[in-house]
Design a protein around this nucleic acid. Structure first.
Length: 505
RNA sequence: GGCCUCUUCGUCUAUCGGUUAGGACGCAAGAUUUUCAUUCUUGAAAGGGGGGUUCGAUUCCCCCAGAGGCUACCA
């Protein structure tokens, strides 16, 4: 369409933790910007002073840093279109509100919240619009002198958008095509409040997108109903020619039941809905985060990218670079996507598999230490090499691998019954003696010597290995026995065997 | 209530009028294995309903139903 530079924005309001749906919106904006060599802007929409939550802005920034979503300009990133925090743009909005007032697209209204509530109770489905505004207290019904006097007296007022009735407003959405809404169903939206001298979302949004030369507005579907209002605002300002293109994304739905994904679902179903752990400063409530739950950022990105978009091929594991190459708005689906936690886990598993052992060791070493174990990095790397395909999360590595670091203190009863035979103690004693005599405790050498011994004695591989396993692990699980014993080393292996022989008899 | 959007396996999705409706997660079975897990193979599993248009509809149109969203001096 237009030849102009791609400029998109992610513009959260700092009212709390960043919802995972918001993360996806930001991701799509990022991918779109990167792919087109455009800019991604980070704007803070804090026009509702009542809902401001301290720490939210920092939280959002940290989330994106963790996820690898980078901004080109905006709050904390700089740029030539600032300030990027709406609360710092008061004077700009005032100027543009005046433009609308002057050209007759807006008017001043003095109705108090109480009066409006009374109206709503009096008339069912009351709407402040062309059909009712002449019954209200505003600059259209009051005479000019009175309006001036009320303002001079410090009376609080709002500026409302004067919507002409019965106009079919077309929104050409990249994902949904032509959406038409008749202006009569729209109300005269409040654009500006004198109380805090701040605009509402709609006005600030349009002014900022225009001034910041935003080319595409990629946002959640919850904004679709107000898109016609936005079109009308661009029109009222005379900016329709440079109006951004819209793309309304499908919503993220609850894994089960009805409605869109909410914070509560996470708590209820036991999975995070926030990228990072969030401590609500008002309620003191703590909500879990993907990062703290052991997710790799690459996995979160990959999983989220595929919730509402697909590359058109059967490839599902996609790096950020691949996503940048392949992403397009045309392949976005229109229907809401139910959040599938099992699939998210699978992605994480895949990314753990694809990471090299050294990198996982970096993440796992602190966990080992937390459990009071001093293990060499070399050993940890070896353990990870043989165990990482068994877990979905780094933190699960401890439970599945702890026997490498801590000798069993008790033996699983079921396994003992099934695997520890009459002659097991005798065989293990023999095996211990055999192993003790080995100079070379390498995996290969142990295997060679022991398998030969088993064959000569006619003990049966299964019998020996299962008892051996119970002695070293305490349960009937884990990788191959010589993998375990060689990592454990001769001393530890023998000590575990001798204890098992004494305890299990 | 009004308005807008959406509707393919349980879930995420492919299909842009003609396919045995494909893939992935999950699930089940089998194989391999010194245990467990991994891995591999196989399987079950879908076009909301009703009308059209068409030689032919999952695909286009209409109606209904269902789902989701919006309906604030919140974003």
């Amino acid at each position: 369409m237009s030849e102009r530079k791609v400029r998109v924005r992610f513009a959260p309001s700092p009212t709390g933790a960043l919802h995972i749906g918001g993360v996806r919106t930001a991701l799509y904006n990022y991918l779109f910007a990167r792919q087109h060599g455009g800019d991604l802007i980070f704007r803070i929409e804090d026009t509702d002073s009542n809902r401001f939550v301290p720490g939210a802005e920092e939280y959002i920034l940290e989330s994106f840093k963790w996820l690898g979503i980078k901004f080109d300009e905006g709050v904390s990133f700089g740029g030539n279109y600032g300030p990027y925090r709406q609360s710092e743009r008061r004077e700009i909005y005032k100027k543009y509100v005046q433009v609308l007032l002057d050209n007759g697209s807006a008017y001043i209204a003095f109705d108090t919240p109480e009066e409006l509530n009374a109206k709503r109770e009096e008339i069912k489905n009351f709407q402040y619009d062309a059909s009712t505004r002449m019954q209200m207290r505003n600059s259209l019904t009051l005479d000019q002198e009175e309006v001036k006097q009320l303002i001079a007296d410090g009376k609080q007022y709002v500026v409302r958008f004067k919507i002409e009735p019965n106009i079919d407003v077309h929104v050409n959405d990249i994902i949904r095509g032509d959406v038409v809404i008749n202006s009569s169903i729209l109300d005269d939206k409040v654009l500006f409040k004198s109380a805090d001298e701040l605009p509402t979302y709609h006005l600030a949004n349009i002014v900022d997108d225009h001034l910041m030369e935003v080319s595409h507005v990629i946002r959640g579907e919850e904004w679709l109903p107000s898109a016609p209002l936005h079109v009308l605002l661009y029109r009222a300002f005379g900016w329709e020619d440079s109006m951004p293109r819209f793309a309304h994304l499908p919503l993220l739905l609850k894994p089960e039941g009805n409605g869109k994904l909410s914070k509560r679902d996470g708590d209820r179903l036991g999975f995070p809905v926030f990228p990072l752990e969030w401590h609500d400063p008002k309620t003191g409530e703590v909500s879990s985060g993907y990062r703290e739950s052991g997710y790799l950022p690459e996995a979160v990105i990959n999983f989220l990218a595929l919730l509402g978009w697909n590359p058109g091929t059967e490839q599902e594991i996609l790096s950020m670079d691949e996503l940048v190459k392949l992403f397009n708005l045309e392949h976005c689906s229109k229907s809401g996507a139910r959040f599938d936690y099992e699939k998210a886990k699978w992605f994480n598993h895949e990314y753990i598999l694809s990471k090299d052992n050294e990198e996982i060791a970096d993440m796992f070493m602190p966990i080992v230490k937390e459990h009071g174990v001093e293990a060499s990095r070399e050993m940890v790397v070896k353990v990870i090499g043989m165990m990482k395909d068994r877990v979905s999360f780094i933190k699960d590595l401890w439970d599945t691998c702890k026997f490498f670091f801590v000798a069993p203190t008790e033996y699983d009863e079921k396994t003992r019954k099934k695997r520890w035979k009459e002659d097991s103690a005798k065989c293990m004693a023999e095996l211990a003696d055999l192993l003790e005599g080995l100079e070379d405790f390498s995996l290969e050498h142990q295997e060679e010597v022991v398998m030969k011994w088993i064959e000569e004695k006619g003990y049966g591989t299964g019998n020996i290995m299962n008892a051996f396993r119970l002695a070293l692990v305490g349960e009937g699980k884990g990788p191959h026995m010589f993998d375990i014993s060689s990592v454990l080393g001769k001393e530890e292996t023998l000590s575990r065997m001798r204890r098992a022989i004494a305890v299990l008899k």
